[in-house]
Computed example of a mutant assay.
Amino acid sequence: MSFRITTLIFASSVCLSSLALAFQSPTQPEAQFDLAQQLALKPNSDSPFDVRYWLEQSAYHGYIPAQKQLAKDYGHGLTGEIDYSQAIYWFTSVALNDPTDSGFLLADFVQRHQAEVSKADLVESWYQLAALKNPQAEEAYNQFLEERFNQLRAKQLSEIVDLDKKAIAQEEQENMTFTTQQKAESSSVWYAVGAFGLALLIGGGAFGYRWHRKRAHIQSDHEITQSQQLENQVNELQFANKQLKRQFEKVFKEFKKIKEQTDNQKLAVACAMFGYTPYSIPDSKAVKLRYRQLSKLYHPDSRGSEEEMKRLNLAFKTISQNVTKG
Rank of each mutant, 00 (worst) to 15 (best):
127 Y>W: 11
164 D>H: 00
240 A>H: 06
115 A>N: 15
156 Q>K: 09
158 S>I: 05
188 S>C: 02
144 F>E: 05
204 G>Y: 09
179 T>C: 05
251 V>W: 14
204 G>S: 05
208 G>V: 10
124 E>P: 00
163 L>G: 11
245 K>I: 12
154 A>E: 12
203 G>V: 04
206 A>L: 12
126 W>E: 06
221 D>E: 15
188 S>N: 03
249 E>F: 05
236 E>F: 06
152 L>P: 01
207 F>Q: 13
179 T>G: 05
240 A>E: 00
125 S>N: 01
253 K>N: 09
249 E>G: 03
144 F>H: 07
188 S>W: 04
229 Q>M: 15
129 L>R: 05
192 A>E: 02
248 F>E: 10
125 S>T: 02
175 N>L: 14
192 A>S: 07
213 R>S: 08
120 A>G: 07
190 W>N: 14
165 K>Q: 13
176 M>R: 12
196 F>R: 11
255 F>N: 11
170 Q>V: 07
206 A>P: 00
168 I>G: 04
202 I>E: 01
176 M>V: 08
147 E>Q: 15
156 Q>D: 06
189 V>F: 13
174 E>C: 09
164 D>P: 00
166 K>R: 15
124 E>D: 15
139 E>P: 00
120 A>D: 10
118 S>W: 05
255 F>T: 08
224 I>Y: 08
140 A>C: 02
140 A>Y: 00
244 L>T: 02
165 K>W: 13
120 A>W: 01
186 S>R: 06
256 K>S: 05
230 L>M: 11
155 K>S: 10
199 A>H: 11
253 K>F: 15
137 A>W: 13
225 T>D: 10
180 T>M: 12
117 V>Q: 03
229 Q>D: 08
113 H>T: 01
247 Q>R: 11
242 K>P: 01
125 S>M: 06
241 N>W: 08
245 K>M: 06
155 K>D: 11
218 I>S: 07
115 A>F: 02
217 H>M: 09
237 L>W: 03
133 K>L: 11
161 V>P: 02
139 E>W: 03
208 G>S: 15
131 A>I: 00
229 Q>V: 10
187 S>C: 06
185 E>V: 13
186 S>G: 07
214 K>P: 01
248 F>P: 07
189 V>Q: 10
194 G>E: 15
243 Q>G: 13
208 G>Y: 14
253 K>L: 12
172 E>C: 02
115 A>W: 03
245 K>T: 04
137 A>P: 05
156 Q>W: 08
162 D>N: 11
212 H>S: 10
130 A>M: 07
182 Q>C: 04
167 A>H: 08
115 A>Y: 03
114 Q>S: 15
143 Q>T: 09
150 N>R: 14
121 D>M: 13
193 V>D: 14
128 Q>H: 09
223 E>V: 01
181 Q>T: 01
222 H>I: 04
198 L>Y: 15
147 E>G: 15
141 Y>K: 00
175 N>P: 01
120 A>P: 02
165 K>F: 08
184 A>F: 10
136 Q>F: 14
193 V>G: 09
242 K>Q: 13
154 A>W: 03
196 F>H: 12
174 E>I: 11
173 Q>K: 09
186 S>C: 03
184 A>P: 07
130 A>Y: 02
115 A>V: 03
203 G>M: 12
255 F>W: 09
159 E>C: 03
163 L>C: 05
168 I>D: 08
220 S>I: 02
146 E>R: 14
196 F>L: 15
187 S>M: 07
241 N>K: 10
160 I>L: 07
